[in-house]
Design a protein around this nucleic acid. Structure first.
Length: 106
DNA sequence: CTTGTGACGCATC
DNA sequence: AGATGCGCCACAA
């Protein structure tokens, strides 16, 4: 299981971001969003943890890492909208998911 | 086995 | 925008 989730995390391309729920779902575990967080806590130091966000693109990181995360994301080209990320532009999508990302409005 | 915990998610207030 | 409550599920004690 961990391997599946980790695999997804590694598959997040640079300049893009994914939510816990999405990662969990794509990995094959729709309701395991919290475990994604648990894994990031354990192996996060060896994964693109900064590309994992909460729903809507919110930085859930409570620690001071939030600043680091935000900085890293911007460094990768991710645009922020106030305190959150432009999921509309950087929302990572997998073939397993529907192409709802196309439903973007300006 | 029972409790407590948690980088969550959504509904509500 | 911030806080609270409930649901969710694996893991630790």
């Amino acid at each position: 299981m961990d391997a599946a989730i980790v695999k997804i995390l590694r598959s997040i391309p640079r300049g893009k971001v994914a939510t816990y729920g999405q990662v969990a779902a794509v990995a094959g575990y729709p309701r395991r969003h919290r475990h994604v967080a648990q894994l990031l806590r354990k192996y996060g130091d060896a994964l693109p943890w900064h590309r994992v966000l909460g729903s809507g693109g919110q930085l859930k990181t409570r620690s001071d890492s939030a600043l680091d995360q935000r900085f890293r994301l911007q460094m990768e080209g991710v645009r922020f909208r106030g305190s959150r990320v432009d999921m509309r532009e950087h929302a990572c999508t997998w073939p397993s998911e529907r192409s709802k990302a196309l439903r973007r409005r300006t």
